[in-house]
Nucleic acid binder design. Structure first.
Lengths: 338, 338
DNA sequence: CTGAAAGCGCTAACAC
DNA sequence: GTGTTAGCGCTTTCAG
């Protein structure tokens, strides 16, 4: 009814013709453009737009403006609960600012391919939640696109980034376990260049004069966590508590311990890192160092602004205490901004 | 080193100049264009591209071609594990086909806003994994963009869609519970227009001459599942088994039952719908009707092709049997294509 | 095999 | 307040 018969795509010229104005005026009217438009004219334009079912062509606009109103998000897979969470928040923030989000998984095709593609896309900004090297970044150097790194293990000079203080988070988590009387606390996680979580773990132990001798290398996956549970129990002087570098690992460990007939927290206490919703509903709910995702995203968008100083914003995660470490359950607190 | 000093953005004209050819030839060389190019010339062009660090402007290309090489994905939130899974697979498939994925969450801003925006974006296709109405779709009617609906509760005439047979999945799940001797089986899920899962549940019960009197309405969330557990137990003649309409609900129920001191599957058995990875690692691992996500995505992309018949592809989910229903644990099977 | 040139649809000077 | 018009960077027809 509202859509008149027309095979050709409706363009701005059609609107102008129907409204009896020039194309410029259509622009002005639609964008509350740089020049004023008489109210009556504007109404005529809007009416014509409605009648024709006209939709501005974002591509043409982007070409002219040199800006697509899209941001890019590079993650190592969206199915991982933490990155799903992050992606969700980023998309929401982006949309609130009138930006669309292009997600790119770098897991299987490699960062370089992704970065190359990004350089073509004329994105208004790119958020990279992935380990990248200086070299990778160089590939998109010439492109206007401003980049913000999220949770990069090691700062890269000249690139804006927002990092959550993994060291502090780990330190607090392990200290909490120590406060509960644990003496044998294991660390489970992959070997990453930074090792902030592992250092937080070992320093917390050192402060309490406890040995940091229980390290188990596992990648970020539930399967790895499941396997880790067994290995943990076979260690000489097995742990009474475990700090896992991610929720996924913790999820596997939890199941693994149970398969061995052990209960959490009575036999082995557990604290994880990430704080995704899933941990709140695990059995038992798992105490986790909770990443301040909303704040991370807010900061990241702030940093995308062209006139922001290059540098790193550091946020501190909060320990959401639940029953997996022997305390009563609770809801995760909001994290604060440093 | 490779990047020469240049403040202006490098354009195709620069490459042409440096290579001593016309801009047309640059195009031909870069796209293995419609016209052939002498090998030597091509090398000169490629060299110039390298030297200048030239990146084609995707926006300009899109404007000219009328195609952005981007697809849109509309989901009600990415943090939900099932949609995270789906998003992950779609992005992967898209990337494999040289397409970027623009994700749009319709949860808070409403489908209309999203659909309107999509109509502007000149996307090569849109996958909608959201409940939409015919009216919503009409808004983007005139745009070239072809649309495929994923898991739409009710088919919409004239729109391609891929649906998994929720009825069949539910029927199988509940039959399985009945096979284990359960007589009091509850259904938990939201009231949706289709109710396929609920019908599957009630029909399975009917076939076994069992009453379908235990329906509990809950939305798709862990919290709702948690609350549901309590309500379930307060029902007259409480269930010995529960079929949950989604993994998230099941996750909440599992915790809820445990808080009531009940064990799964001994006191109450549980089967869920979706089959996300999380269920494999729940305690106990939860039997779930597993959506054939990879196949869904493959079909969806096939349907995006312009010369595909309009219609609905129907896939059947597979029951991944784990210990939450009293059988031994197992890994989920690959789903088959109907 | 290569070059010149016409636009894709839009914005924003710049004129009136 | 409104109209004219140049051009964003690319592809591709049509001549050479």
């Amino acid at each position: 009814m509202t859509a008149p018969p027309s095979d050709r795509r409706v363009t701005r010229a059609d609107v102008a013709r129907l409204a009896g104005v020039s194309t410029a005026v259509v622009s002005y009217a639609l964008n509350d453009g740089p020049r004023p438009v008489a109210e009556a004219t504007k109404q005529r334009v809007l009416e014509a737009v409605r009648l024709l079912g006209y939709r501005p062509n974002a591509t043409a606009r982007a070409l002219k403006l040199g800006s697509t109103s899209q941001i890019g998000l590079v993650v190592p897979g969206v199915s991982n609960p933490f990155f799903a969470w992050l992606t969700d928040r980023i998309e929401a923030q982006a949309r609130a600012r009138g930006l669309a989000t292009v997600v790119m998984n770098s897991a299987d095709s490699g960062v370089l391919e992704v970065v190359t593609r990004i350089a073509s896309l004329q994105l208004d900004g790119v958020l990279i939640a992935n380990e990248v090297t200086r070299g990778d970044l160089l590939r998109m150097e010439n492109s206007e696109t401003s980049v913000v790194l999220l949770n990069q293990p090691t700062e890269i000079a000249g690139i804006r980034s927002v990092i959550v203080d993994r060291y502090a988070g780990a330190f607090e988590a392990v200290s909490h376990l120590i406060g509960h009387g644990h003496q044998r606390i294991a660390y489970t996680g992959p070997a990453d260049p930074e090792e902030a979580r592992r250092r937080g773990w070992s320093d917390a132990l050192a402060v309490a004069d406890l040995p940091a001798d229980l390290t188990l290398r596992t990648e970020y996956s539930r399967d790895a966590g499941l396997a880790a549970a067994t290995e943990l129990l076979e260690m000489p002087g097995p742990p009474t508590a475990v700090f896992a570098a991610s929720d996924e690992i913790a999820s596997g460990i939890l199941l693994g311990l149970h398969q061995h007939g052990l209960s959490t927290p009575d036999d082995v206490a557990l604290i994880s890192f990430d704080g995704t919703e899933e941990m709140r509903y695990a059995r038992p709910p798992v105490t986790s160092v909770t990443q301040p995702v909303d704040d991370m995203v807010r900061c990241a968008f702030d940093l995308l602004g062209p006139d922001m100083a290059v540098g790193a914003v550091r946020l501190v995660p909060q320990l959401a205490i639940r029953s997996s470490c022997g305390c009563g359950p609770s809801l995760p607190q909001k994290a604060v901004r440093s």
